[in-house]
Computed example of a mutant assay.
Amino acid sequence: MNHPRTSRQGYVLITVVAAVSAAIASATALALSLPVWAMFMGWIAFFSRGLTTRSTVENLGCVWLGISIGTLAATGIGMLAPALGVGVALPIVVFAVAIVVVGIRGMPVMNNLLAYFLGLVTWFASELAPSIENVVQLAAAGAIGSAAGWVSHFAPRWILRATGSVRQTT
C-alpha cells in the first residue's frame, strides 16, 4: 500500500483513499445487514498476498472456502458431539480440518493458507448456525472488504497517474 518512493502527496492520498474505501465498505455492509467485522476479514485477505486483481480473486476464494470448511466443521462437531461429547468431537474435527487446509496450501492456485484460516475464523467467530444463507452472508461481507482493499490499493495509483503526480521509477 505504500512504497518508500511515495511522495508526501501520495502518502496522504493513499491514507485518504483507504479511509474512504473502509467507510464506504462498512456503510455498504451495514446497509445490507452484513457483519462489518466480517467485511474486514476480506480486506485483510486482500492484503495478505499478491496485490493484483488475480490474487484478489484467489485470496477471496480461499476465504470463501475457509468459511465453507468452517460450516462443514461446525456441522461435523454437531453430529459427533452427542455421541462423543464436545471434548472429543471438537479435536477430531479440528484435526481433520487442519489436515485439509494445511494440505491444500501446496496447490498451484488457491493456496493462501492465511486466507483459509481467515475464512475459518470468520465462520467460527460469527457463531451462526450452519446454513447456506449464513455462508452467503459472511461470503458477501468478505467480498465487500476484498473489493474495498482492491480499491484502496489501486485507486491512488490511478489518481496520481491522472493528475500527473506519479514519479517514474525504473
Rank of each mutant, 00 (worst) to 15 (best):
F95A: 15
V86C: 00
R49F: 09
N2P: 01
V36H: 05
L80S: 06
A83P: 00
L65W: 11
E58Y: 15
Q9G: 01
L90Q: 11
A18G: 12
F46D: 03
A27Y: 02
N2C: 06
R5E: 15
A83T: 10
T28D: 01
I24Y: 10
R5G: 14
F95T: 11
P91M: 11
A18T: 15
V88N: 04
S26C: 12
S55G: 01
G78E: 00
L32V: 02
F95G: 04
S55F: 11
L65R: 12
L65V: 10
M79K: 00
F40G: 09
G61A: 10
V36D: 14
T15W: 09
M110P: 07
T56I: 04
P82D: 05
A73Q: 04
V57L: 14
T56R: 08
I44G: 01
L34V: 07
V102W: 04
A22K: 00
A19M: 13
V36Q: 09
V101P: 03
I67P: 07
V94K: 01
L80Q: 05
L51K: 12
H3P: 03
G106A: 08
L65T: 13
L80W: 04
V20M: 07
V63T: 06
L114H: 10
V63K: 00
A31C: 06
Y11H: 08
F95E: 03
W37S: 14
P82G: 07
A27S: 09
G106Q: 09
R49T: 01
V63M: 04
V94L: 15
I67R: 08
V97K: 00
G50W: 15
C62I: 03
A83H: 03
T71V: 10
L13C: 08
G85V: 00
R49I: 00
L32F: 15
M39A: 14
R49D: 06
G66A: 09
P108V: 12
W43R: 07
M110V: 10
A29N: 06
T53F: 15
I67M: 13
T6C: 04
L72T: 10
I77H: 05
